[in-house]
Nucleic acid binder design. Structure first.
Lengths: 142, 142
DNA sequence: CTGACTGCAAAAGGTTTGCAAAAAG
DNA sequence: CTTTTTGCAAACCTTTTGCAGTCAG
């Protein structure tokens, strides 16, 4: 779990700093989180850390492959640990709820994209907009 | 093509204004466009139109079902005519290129989401991030 | 006429940048 | 000691909002 994340950074010429460690831990702790939420989490331990450091750190962590992000709706992106199970976001455009499902459901689809377009999908980065079961039901009642 | 778009608006209690007509025409003309691009297009005809009108108009047009939007990457969303063929966006995270493919490739996937999660996908709103064929090749050369 | 719609300017949200000080190796 | 990284403040970009005037019906 707590891999040699510092190795990964060092190998790419990056330095090890408490800020980077804290951001990475926050991503792992929160599972899904926006930069703002990560800031709050990090500041529980180190109140002096700045938002711009969060952004710069996430950029680095993403570059070396320790985290990924996905765009869920209009607002801020959410960041995930790479160690987490890959998942797909289903975003309900009516109630704004987000549910995660296993990537299994998309296996064939992803294969099709690879075959047809030579496109290599970043599985953890897929978000599908639509309407969730709850909101579908609610609509039927009208 | 030039349907009774005014009917659609009127039926929902909205008024017909030149701005709404121009924005709708711009969406149809441009195919894919961000609010800013739509503004530019509209201003070719009516220079006084304001950006906030574009936003408010798009909201209305989307509500009555005359346009849809999809999130492509970090930046601004792009709007499409509903009359256009539904398509899925493949966004390359390396070169930022966007290609559109037919929704056929996703039929089974969408069916799976419906079965497993009761989730009704808004097909024209799906964007898939990853790496395009060109960038995959380029990477192999290194 | 009356309420919906627009333009304008200001605010809000999210992200980026320049710079000097601090810290890593 | 050199170079990266950080904190801070300001800039930036996109979107939203309040308000007074305008226009569609």
């Amino acid at each position: 779990m707590a891999r040699d994340w510092d190795e990964v950074l060092r190998d790419q010429g990056y330095r090890i700093t408490p800020q980077r460690q804290l951001v990475l831990e926050a991503v792992n702790t929160l599972g899904h989180a926006t930069p703002e939420e990560l800031l709050a989490e990090v500041q529980k331990t180190a109140a002096a850390v700045n938002l711009s450091t969060i952004y710069r750190t996430l950029e680095v962590l993403e570059q070396v492959g320790l985290v990924t992000h996905a765009h869920i709706g209009h607002g801020a992106p959410t960041y995930h640990s790479v160690e987490e199970d890959a998942h797909i976001h289903l975003v309900c455009d009516t109630c704004q709820d987000v549910q995660s499902i296993s990537v299994d459901a998309a296996e064939l689809f992803i294969q099709a994209l690879r075959d047809k377009a030579g496109f290599e999908t970043d599985v953890s980065h897929v978000s599908v907009h639509g309407q969730c079961a709850k909101c579908m039901d609610r609509q039927k009642l009208l």
